[in-house]
């Protein structure tokens, strides 16, 4: 797996011992957000240099999950599983689960992992972030 490029390197990185960090941010007011941006803080409106990059732990718990049986959009083949996760560091985010079928239910602890998937170009392989049940 090492050496396979990340699909969205601006959104997540790989730390020591395989831990995945999300590239979030924090405002001077204390608000923590994902993804990283300098447009402005949703709580207080501070922007630019008042916002600081912050690595967010990939650990969290399931808020909601579902198996998508039929997808209305190109570039993604159903079935796949999706989840809403409350990160231990605060933000609520949504993305894909690593497994398909019988998704972990609300309250279950999950962690971010990188899994190898097809890239945007034919034959290309990349690693993208998913959530899986925490060991």
């Amino acid at each position: 797996m090492v050496g396979v490029p990340r699909l969205k390197p601006e959104l997540y990185e790989e730390g020591e011992e395989g831990a995945i960090w999300l590239s979030g941010g924090a405002c001077e007011c204390g608000h923590v957000f994902f993804p990283w941006q300098t447009f402005g803080c949703e709580v207080c409106g501070r922007h630019g240099a008042d916002l600081h990059p912050r690595r967010l732990s990939g650990s969290g718990s399931i808020v909601a999950s579902a198996t998508v049986h039929l997808h209305a959009g190109k570039g993604r083949q159903a079935p796949f599983d999706v989840c809403v996760v409350k990160l231990d560091d605060g933000p609520v985010i949504r993305t894909l689960l690593a497994s398909v079928g019988d998704p972990p239910q609300p309250g279950r602890a999950v962690r971010a992992v990188l899994v190898e998937v097809d890239g945007r170009e034919p034959g290309e392989r990349v690693r993208d972030m998913r959530f899986e049940v925490a060991a």
């Binding site: 579902a66 997808h71 959009g73 993604r76 796949f80 999706v82 809403v84 949504r94 993305t95 894909l96």
Partner: peptide, 19 residues
């Protein structure tokens, strides 16, 4: 950017709320 925003069409958003 978003992690996988294209996966979350309206009916999937509300499938999650149902769950």
């Amino acid at each position: 950017g978003g992690l996988a925003e294209d996966a979350f069409v309206a009916f999937t958003h509300f499938a999650l709320l149902t769950n």
